[in-house]
Simulated scan of single mutants.
Amino acid sequence: MRFLMGLCVALALGSGVVAAQERRPSHCIALAEAPGVTYLHKASFRDPVAEHSVRISYIHHASFLIQSADGIDAVTDYTGFLGTTDFVPDVVTMNHAHGTHWTANPDPEIPHVLPGWGDYGLGIEHHLDLGAMLVRNVSTDIRSYGGVEEKGNSIFIFEVAGLCIGHLGHLHHEPNAAQYAAIGRLDVVMAAVDGGMSLDVATMMRVLRKLKAQVVIPMHWFESWTLEAFLTGMSDEYLIERGAGSSMTVSLRDLPKQPTIKLLTPRFLQDP
């Protein structure tokens, strides 16, 4: 009897190991050295994405459309409105720091709706493998009703076409060592630069310098002076590219010799 019980336990443990091995690991965490990115031509969000590339379109506030060459479409900080379009993404992420970062009534046709929060104080874990795109999150704390809601928001990472694309969400504190490690390598990062509603500019600049992404896309800014303060503070280490329109396409090629801030102009999606 004792032998049979031991055998059952061993089989159960073995099946757990197999299940764990079936989960595709994060290449952004696994790879120590970042490959490169090359800027390609701009295109309509309805146009096909070039092979081995990713198109990023700035929609509004903290919402971006991330599209793969294999036809996977993801929207960050989804509010329920994308523009004058009937476009339905495959996956949307949300944060609930403010109503401009989530909706209680997402389109029921969206296959994957990923909230950045779970039960109060417990956070949530996402590891959505869509084949051409892996979407995962790292929980962060948010200020809430004069206190702090632990693990109330998330940083979302999109692993696609060999790139590691991070959306910092409505970040309210500098990540700790464990959170930095969980984020892993980032090639492209969207960062809130409002200077107060999320992080102050000095702390956000410190976070970005630690993340070492080669491409930074500012978001969540309300006044031009907060944006300019951020750009000025980063200009000693980063090239500033203005007038880039509302979208950019990147691929895994050669990194720019100097990290670059790509200033995109938000624009709601619009069908032809």
Results as ranks from 00 to 15, higher is better:
M234Q: 09
R46E: 11
A244N: 10
D254V: 07
K42M: 15
E241S: 14
T232F: 15
A19M: 13
G131L: 10
I240N: 01
F87R: 03
Q214S: 12
I240P: 06
A19E: 11
S144K: 14
G169E: 04
A30C: 04
H172E: 06
E109H: 11
I124V: 15
Q179S: 07
E237G: 04
T79R: 01
G16S: 14
R24Q: 12
Y120T: 08
L252A: 13
V216D: 08
A202K: 14
G169C: 05
H167W: 07
D129I: 01
A74L: 10
D90A: 05
E223S: 08
P89T: 05
K212W: 01
R55G: 01
G184A: 07
P256M: 02
S57V: 05
I155F: 03
S235Y: 10
L186W: 01
H220L: 09
S139I: 03
A178S: 10
L269P: 00
H126S: 08
E125G: 05
A62D: 15
D236P: 07
M197K: 03
A161V: 03
A20V: 08
V207W: 11
T38Q: 07
G99C: 02
S198L: 03
K262P: 00
G80E: 02
I157T: 13
F268G: 03
L171T: 06
G99P: 08
A10V: 06
S246K: 07
R267M: 09
A202N: 10
D90Y: 03
T260K: 04
P108I: 07
I240A: 13
V160L: 10
G196R: 09
H220C: 05
L130G: 06
V88E: 12
